[in-house]
Design a protein around this nucleic acid. Structure first.
Lengths: 339, 339
DNA sequence: CAGTGACTTGACAACGTTGTCGGGCGCGAG
DNA sequence: CTCGCGCCCGACAACGTTGTCAAGTCACTG
């Protein structure tokens, strides 16, 4: 900037004014400055300016997603970035791979880079440590999962309701023995989806068979193994509700291996890519990742714009997408019932 | 930092020394400083330090990916981030959605934030404008596509060879009428894959039917429409080579709609999620996105470490993954041949 | 013609940190 | 005892920018 000022024959502050579009610069001077800046390929240093600027905004958002392996996270990222760009913001992203230590490291890294706001997918058991940053004026929005130890804006999927929808759908097609395959228990959404499953069965007065409930599945291989085991029980489930997309893929593979994909019903939580190319096509409870990301980003910017209202907890509804696998009817009378 | 110094009863520079692990601080003082820093929850401002620091490193990498809708880009991103973290770096990412203007905007945004290096998926026709940044010492590595107008490190997939492999595979299964469905012509990889297709056919002395070559497909809907049209020609192709994953999905849908998925062979470039759950399972030419991302990041860090050797052009080979759809044999004699 | 106000401009301090340098102190050697 | 050297430590300038403020110019008014 000093060089630009010298070349244009003006003071350094005048260059600053032109670069930032401040008023009170004569058109002739402004033009000379612009020429000089262009010929030197000057790019202002955002962070240096930040140091002195009144608003102290780095115009950068910090984003922590659970796992990049998950297309859901990629879509949330994309939606956030779109909103960020509209506000002239860039996004510093870090993927946590569901590692609690990575969460801490990433928050520190972002704090040192003075991001203006955090969008976090909680992984640790406790997010109280984030209070510090919030108290210092860095807004925090949690997505996908509710945080612990801190009251803040959240944007989550209606996990319990979505799971109930799935189970209700299966019940309506005559199923009574419905298995639930879920992700690691420490992941909050896994627990909520199981809760929805239990709630809906309870509401329909159906006894729950604990043997049909398996949690702790985090990849498709383990899901395949467990699904195979359940399906070869003496009294197997007539339907499966899988609580996460990799688990759904594992369940499909198991069904295919046993040749049961047209006999046992399946509803998966969260979309599976190409789910409509499979046979049968896969019925899913779809999450609106785009909306979740958009709302989260908008919450951050609202807080940055001075919104000090109490924390909001936004719940984005799911949508049951009927494609075929969930509409397979239960056998008219299960052996156990006939007894 | 001033506050920490006051609380610890030391000079501000001593705090700096402790925070940065510089030598020549007595253990007692260091401990007092650490206590003070912890009790004030002090986080150093990386960018302020940067301003004065000798190496002038923001410890941030800038990444431009073509489109987040693409799982390939997500995987590249992930691999780069992993290497970045090992080096204590964070990643500022921007997705371009294959919009040439977005490329310019994103580069400017990253340059103003003083990233230490760029990893760019070229979208524009000309990357000469990036020379400025390279000359100023910001290394640039291009991934997935070769840049124009600038000599720099590149990491790309062996598109031509991969396409030849795919076509050779189909030829070996008796096919002579092989359609090629490709992405937008302005996307370099699309052209290279078509070139591989043409090369392999030429090498085998097979006449190319221009009616079987369609480019400009960027989503699955248009690919479905085009594939349907080709398959209902009077003299349809007996095999399809699709040059991108969304196009592959479109082709599969068309085949399914026409009930031809077990009669017409298909090989797709780039992986399709759940490709092994489809019937038939989809044979693909897989790209090693993880390796591409890793190599790109390592090139950036090598340049940052002072490597001034001539630009390297790394080519990551593809792998033909045989799953079923590409092994469907051509009808023994096509009507045209019998003629 | 003096006074007024609007507009334009630059000198200077400040932001939070690191590099430089010099001062003080303790200890071993002469 | 004195000198010298090494280790600790802090004052100060500097990084590239913006906020503050005062000075300068000019046209217009009374």
């Amino acid at each position: 900037m000093r060089d630009v000022a010298q070349l244009a024959g003006v003071g350094i502050k005048t260059v600053s004014r032109v670069v930032n579009g401040e008023p009170n610069v004569s058109p002739a001077t402004a033009e000379r400055v612009r020429q000089a800046a262009a010929s030197l390929h000057f790019e202002p240093d955002l962070h240096a300016g930040n140091l002195r600027r009144a608003d102290r905004r780095s115009r950068t958002l910090g984003l922590l997603v659970s796992s990049v392996a998950n297309p859901f996270a990629a879509q949330v990222h994309r939606a956030i970035e779109r909103v960020a760009i509209e506000h002239g913001y860039a996004v510093l992203a870090a993927s946590l791979e569901d590692d609690p230590d990575a969460e801490l490291r990433a928050v520190t890294a972002l704090a040192r880079r003075r991001v203006d706001g955090f969008v976090v997918t909680p992984v640790r058991d406790d997010q109280a440590y984030l209070r510090l940053h919030v108290e210092r004026g860095t807004p925090l929005v949690c997505v996908d999962r509710e945080p612990h130890g801190i009251e803040t804006d959240t944007v989550v999927t209606s996990n319990v309701e979505g799971a109930r929808d799935a189970v209700r759908h299966l019940l309506a097609h005559g199923h009574r023995r419905i298995a639930f395959l879920g992700d690691l228990e420490r992941i909050q959404t896994a627990g909520q989806r199981r809760q929805g499953y239990l709630d809906e069965l309870a509401a329909s007065g159906i006894d729950v068979d604990p043997a049909l409930i398996v949690l702790g599945l985090h990849d498709d291989a383990s899901a395949t193994a467990v699904a195979r085991r359940l399906l070869t029980l003496p009294d197997p489930p007539t339907a499966i509700f899988s609580g996460q997309n990799l688990v759904t893929i594992g369940a499909i593979r198991a069904l295919q291996q046993l040749g049961l994909e047209h006999d046992v019903a399946l509803v998966g939580f969260d979309d599976v890519e190409t789910s409509d190319l499979l046979k049968p096509r896969v019925t899913t409870v779809s999450q609106d990742a785009d909306r979740i990301g958009r709302l989260a980003a908008e919450r951050v910017f609202a807080r940055l714009d001075g919104d000090t209202s109490p924390p909001r907890h936004l719940v984005v509804p799911t949508r049951l997408v009927v494609r075929g696998s969930g509409e397979i009817r239960a056998p008219l009378a299960a052996p156990a019932d006939v007894g």
